[in-house]
Write a protein that binds this DNA or RNA. Structure first.
Lengths: 335, 335
DNA sequence: TTGTAGGCGTTATCAG
DNA sequence: CTGATAACGCCTACAA
C-alpha cells in the first residue's frame, strides 16, 4: 500500500504538501502541485480513509436507514440517496430497521461508531423526543417522510393533506358520488392527513365519505383484498375506492375481480405512492405520485450541506407535493 | 467522546488491558476484567472504529454491489446480505453499479479505500480476468450468480440448466406440446443455460422449441409485451410460453390479455425468479423460485469466513437449485 | 508557499 | 497476567 509518506519522498516534498494537493486545500505552487499529482498518479496512491477519519474526525459517508430496502418504495429512496452521495464521492452505509425502534437505535449507534455524521432516516415508530435527541448529536441527520416541529429544517416530508385533496378531486371530477376507502389503522400521520384532505374536497361539493365506508387495516396487498371483502360484508355501495397505497389498491382490484367486478368499468380505484408495480398491474393504476426519489436526493444533499457548515435557514422545512398520475383504474362514473 | 485511555485511567489499569477486555482476546485476570467492564459500561465507552481499522488493518464492513437495489430481486439479495452481516455485527456498504463495469470498478476502489475486505458482488458485464484479479486483492470477495472456474470457491450461483429442465417438465406434465419463449438476447450465461435445460426436457419426450418460436430481447416487462406481439407477427402457435423472468412474464400476460387471450385458460405462462410481484399479479404467476435471499446470506457468511482465515475447501463451489412454485398462470393444456 | 511535529484512538509487540 | 511503547496513515496548527 502506497502512503502519503511514500509519495512525499518520491516527489521530494513534505507530507504536508502532498496532503494539501490531495485535499485540494491550502496554498501550493502550480509547478509543485502538478509534479505531486503526477507522482500520485504514477504510484497509484489512494488516501486511507480510516487514517483520514481518525485525524480529521470527519468522514465522507452517508448512512441510510429505512424499514426494508427490498420494498420498491424504500428501494427507490435508497437509489436516490445513493446517487446523490456517490456524486459527492461519499460512500453509503445501509441499514434496515424493520420498523423496530431498537434496531433503529442500534443502527444509529453503529453508524456513529463508524464516524458517519450524515444519516438519512425514515422512521415512523421512534418518538419525537428521541429524534430530537439524535438531531442534537448528529450534525447531518435528516428525517424523511415525517415532520417534527422542533427540527423542522431537518425534515423532508410530503403534503399528505394536499395529496388527499387531489385524489378526491379527481374522483369528483369523474362524476363519482359514492366513495369507500381502505386505509391504514394508524390514526395519526399520513393516513389521517390524507383523510383530512379527502374530506375537504368532498365536503366542498356537498359529498361525504361516511365513517362506515372506511376500512382500517394495515398497508399491504392482503389488506386490500380483505378490505374489499369487508366493504361488501357491510353492504356498502361505492363507485370509487380510495386506497392508502398502491399495494392496497392492487389487492383491492384483485378482490374485486374475483367477485366479477371490473375495474375501472364497474368501480374506480385510486392508489398512492406510484411505485413500480402501478405501471405493471392490470389495469395500470391511477395513483398519486410520491416523489420519493427526488426527496431522497434532496435529503442527502441537505445532509451534506449540514455537515459542511453551509448556511441553513433554521426556520424552514422542506415540503414536497404529490401529483396525480392518471392511468387506467379510474374512469367516469356511470351514473 | 470517551476513549480507551479515559477508561484505563478511570479503572486504574493500562490501555493495553482495556484493549484486551474490549476485544475479548489475550489473558486478563477475572477480577480485573470484571472491573474494567463495569467502568466501560458506566462511562459508555464505544471503540472508535476508524482508529481500530487503522491500527489493525481490519474492518468489520461488508460491501454489497448490485446493478440496482431498487429492483425487487436485488433488494431481496441486499436484505439477505444485510441480515447476515448485521448478525455478525458487521456494517454494510452499498453500491449500485447500474451494470456498468466502470462504476463497478469505482465502487470496488471506494470500498477498498474504506478498508472493506468483504465484498458481495453481483456482476454480469465485468470480464472473468478482472474478477480474478479482484479476487486476488480482496480476501473476502464473493461473486453471486456467476461461475468463474478459476475462483470457483468464491462463486455462489444457481443451477440454471436444472431450472430450465424443471420449468419445461412442468409444462410437459400439463400436456403442453406447443411452446414459445421470450428470453434475453444474451447468448451466454443464465439464458443460454436455461435454454439448454428446457431443450433437454423437451427432447427427452420428443418435443421441441423451434428457434423461430424464441424471441430474444432484454429482460423487462416491455420485452414481454413486445415479445408476444412479435410471436403473433410471426404467426407462431403456442399453448405454453416460457419467460426469462417474472417481469417478462407479466408483460407477456398483459399483452396477451390485450389481445383477448386468457392466461391460463388459453395460454399458460411461466416465469423465473419468483419476485414479489409474482404473488401480486393476476393471475398469480407460476414461476421458478430463485433462492436469492438464502444465497445472499450464504455468500455473506462465506465472505466473513474467508477474511477470518477459516479453512475453505479450494476445490469446491456453491451451487443452489431453483424450485418450481405453482400458482395460477399454468394449467392443463386444452388439447 | 512549504516544512516540522504533535496528535487522532487502537493495536500489538515486548518486556517485566 | 499486566504495562510500556512503538506503529497505523493522515491532518493541522505553527514555523520557517
Amino acid at each position: 500500500m502506497v502512503t502519503l509518506q511514500d509519495v512525499a519522498e518520491k516527489a521530494g516534498v513534505s507530507p504536508a504538501t502532498v496532503s494539501r494537493v490531495v485535499r485540494g486545500e491550502g496554498k501550493v505552487g502550480d509547478k509543485c502541485r502538478a509534479h505531486v499529482k503526477k507522482v500520485i498518479e504514477k504510484m497509484g496512491y489512494r488516501p486511507n480513509t480510516n487514517a483520514r477519519a481518525l485525524a480529521s474526525n470527519k468522514t465522507e459517508i452517508v448512512g441510510i436507514i429505512v424499514p426494508n430496502i427490498s420494498s420498491p418504495f424504500f428501494g427507490t429512496l435508497a437509489i436516490g440517496a445513493e446517487e446523490a452521495a456517490t456524486k459527492a464521492k461519499y460512500k453509503v452505509l445501509m441499514g434496515n430497521s424493520h420498523n423496530e425502534p431498537k434496531t433503529e437505535q442500534a443502527l444509529i449507534d453503529s453508524f456513529l461508531e463508524q464516524g458517519c455524521q450524515n444519516i438519512i432516516l425514515h422512521s415512523k415508530f421512534t418518538d419525537d423526543a428521541t429524534l430530537i435527541k439524535w438531531a442534537k448529536q448528529i450534525k447531518g441527520l435528516v428525517i424523511v417522510n415525517r415532520f417534527v416541529p422542533e427540527i423542522a429544517n431537518r425534515c423532508i416530508w410530503l403534503d399528505n393533506v394536499s395529496g388527499g385533496r387531489v385524489m378526491a378531486e379527481h374522483l369528483i371530477n369523474q362524476g363519482h358520488k359514492k366513495f369507500a376507502m381502505i386505509t391504514s389503522h394508524l390514526k395519526i400521520g399520513d393516513p389521517a392527513d390524507r383523510l383530512v384532505g379527502i374530506n375537504q374536497s368532498l365536503n366542498r361539493v356537498g359529498l361525504e365519505l361516511p365513517e362506515n365506508n372506511i376500512v382500517y387495516s394495515n398497508a399491504g396487498m392482503e389488506a386490500g383484498e380483505a378490505g374489499v371483502i369487508e366493504l361488501f360484508d357491510r353492504g356498502i355501495e361505492f363507485s370509487a375506492l380510495l386506497c392508502f397505497n398502491d399495494s392496497v389498491a392492487i389487492g383491492a382490484i384483485n378482490a374485486l375481480f374475483d367477485r366479477g367486478i371490473d375495474v375501472p368499468n364497474d368501480v374506480s380505484v385510486i392508489g398512492f405512492d406510484d411505485i413500480i408495480i402501478a405501471k405493471i398491474c392490470r389495469p395500470k393504476l391511477t395513483t398519486m405520485n410520491y416523489p420519493i426519489n427526488k426527496m431522497a436526493v434532496y435529503a442527502t444533499n441537505l445532509s451534506m450541506e449540514l455537515t459542511n457548515n453551509e448556511e441553513q435557514e433554521e426556520h424552514k422545512t422542506h415540503l414536497f407535493m404529490p401529483t396525480l398520475t392518471e392511468r387506467k383504474s379510474v374512469t367516469k362514473s356511470a351514473s
